[in-house]
Amino acid sequence: MWERIAEELPRFFTYYNVIFFLKAMFTTFLLSLVGCLLGSVMGGVLAVIKITKSNLLRPLRIAAVVYVEFFRRIPFLVTLLLIFFVFQALGLEVSVFTVAVVSVWIIATAFIAEIVRSGLEAVPKTQWEAAEVLNFNLRQTLKMVILPQAWKVILPPAFSFFVLFIKDTALASQIGVVELTYSAKVLNNKGFSAALAFGFVLLLYYTISYPLTKFGTWMEKKIEIS
């Protein structure tokens, strides 16, 4: 194996292959980033719906609970395939990248909703009550009192979810998104050693994920101290 790899190495690291890998790496990163950012917005909305008390919003609350519980129990691969075929059936001409981003978005929404909810609930109930009797409405309470305190609890797990999903987006290769895993398959199909192609891509994933994980731990400590 080692002789073969040594022999293939110069051909493997051509200018075009390196550009190809870098682009794929960027796609991998972007897929998780955009999906999780969109998911944070929607997840935040769902979390807020879940903590409301009014009877009027009960149907919305139930919908939010069902959404969160269901989409945390569906494999990402199945979501990808389902969304892929739904777009196809709707006759919408969108890129596979868009399909993958939407799938990440859907799943991330469910997970981040739970992260945000527990963050909001980590702020003592008395802070909510104090705001309530001062006539803050829900939006004002969240903006001025709860979020300034809850973000410390929300950010670290939300960030580690984002890092976790960088790895899960490998599955997007199955619907043809040219991300890191796909790029390894392409080079393997071109005749390069699988050990080299997949080994190199594993290394690339590691170089994205490891520093981000470390950064996440550092951030969590930093926040804890402040």
Binding site: T126, A130, A131, V133, L134, N135, F136, M144, V145, Q149
Partner: peptide, 25 residues
Amino acid sequence: IVFQQYNLFQNMTVLKNVTVAPVKI
């Protein structure tokens, strides 16, 4: 109402705690 556990907003200074409701609300 003034509560047993004071319930001051932890993320605001003393002055902000006192002024936030009259100004913002």
